[in-house]
Write a protein that binds this DNA or RNA. Structure first.
Length: 292
DNA sequence: AAAATAGTCAACCGCCACGAC
DNA sequence: AGTCGTGGCGGTTGACTATTT
């Protein structure tokens, strides 16, 4: 007998999300908070499986997400955390506010791996390529061992007495960068108000068109087709130095454009478990404060 | 200009951990 | 203690775009 699927897959939609679906999901979560993902699609009127809804929310719609490429600082942090934790992307992501495990995983696979190899470093072992190959990926072995013994997540760290705690790593990296990498003046520590501030410069010919903002532009076009959305005028955008997504826009802007939604979100900022959930953004000096 | 190739990233899949019963 | 349901994680895929030939 096979494992029961997470949801009844018959008639469920797959593939990229439409603006309409996003809107439904956001409205639902604003109203009801995050609970019981399995029930979300039915209640929200979506032909998606709960997993898909959760993924869409956590990786794309969450209000506290940063967008754009990882900064040099973030990249170095990821490298260092990866050296400590291996491919535990969610753990790594938890040290980078506003970044998702998926985003970091993608960035690792597409950018950092290559960069490290170019520098002669094995991305698996974080050792020089020549010697790393001789060691048969010890960190992976270490992880396997840790998994085998079913010790808590830090098992592999505990086994090496000289390894610093992950929490200390952040500080170490900052120091390291200050000493060896780029000077701290160049390393903007993330302020709460920056979490939702755009990372992607207004699109120029040099910026990567395949960045999230550009993917989003298609999505935005779809949104603009929706009858019940009012968009800030171009004048407004221009006067504020805004382009659509790549500056300060995300779907929350237009969701919040609706007065009723605004009130709704405000109500829930006081009562909903979603809103009170740490890391959800509403309890941070981020978007909600800009919105209200 | 068209085709081929490479790069990127959102989304899916399957497995695992954990809590409830 | 065993089973079931659910959420979460990491690996992988495939669609889309950019670049090169």
């Amino acid at each position: 007998m096979g494992r029961q699927p997470c949801c009844d897959k018959v008639g469920l939609k797959k593939g990229p999300w439409t603006a309409e679906e996003d809107k439904k999901l956001i409205s639902f979560i604003l109203t009801n908070g995050q609970c019981c993902w399995r029930a979300v699609p039915k209640l929200a009127g979506l032909l998606r499986c709960g997993k898909s809804c959760r993924l869409r929310w956590t990786n794309y719609l969450r209000p506290d997400l940063k967008r754009g490429l990882l900064s040099e600082y973030e990249e170095k942090l990821v490298i260092d955390l990866h050296a400590q934790l291996g491919n535990r992307w969610s753990k790594i992501a938890s040290h980078l506010p506003g970044r998702t495990d998926n985003e970091i995983k993608n960035h690792w696979n597409t950018h950092i791996k290559k960069k490290l190899r170019k520098m002669g470093i094995d991305p698996l072992t974080h050792k020089p390529l020549s010697t790393a190959e001789e060691h048969d990926h010890p960190r992976q072995e270490q992880k396997k061992q840790a998994d085998k013994t079913k010790e808590p997540e830090t098992a592999s760290l505990k086994s090496t007495t000289t390894k610093p705690k992950v929490e200390d790593t952040v500080e170490m990296v900052v120091n390291d960068i200050a000493i060896n990498g780029f000077c701290t003046d160049e390393v903007p520590l993330i302020e709460p108000h920056e979490i939702l501030v755009p990372n992607c410069a207004p699109s120029t010919s040099s910026s990567s068109p395949s960045s999230s903002s550009c993917h989003s532009s298609m999505f935005l076009e779809e949104l603009q087709q929706l009858p019940d959305f009012e968009w800030p005028s171009d004048d407004y955008n221009a006067s504020n130095g805004m382009s659509l997504w790549d500056d300060d826009f995300n779907i929350w802007d237009f969701v919040m454009n609706d007065e009723s939604d605004k009130k709704l979100a405000l109500d829930h900022s006081l009562s909903s478990p979603l809103i009170q959930c740490p890391g959800m953004g509403f309890d941070q000096d981020s978007r909600p404060h800009q919105l209200f």
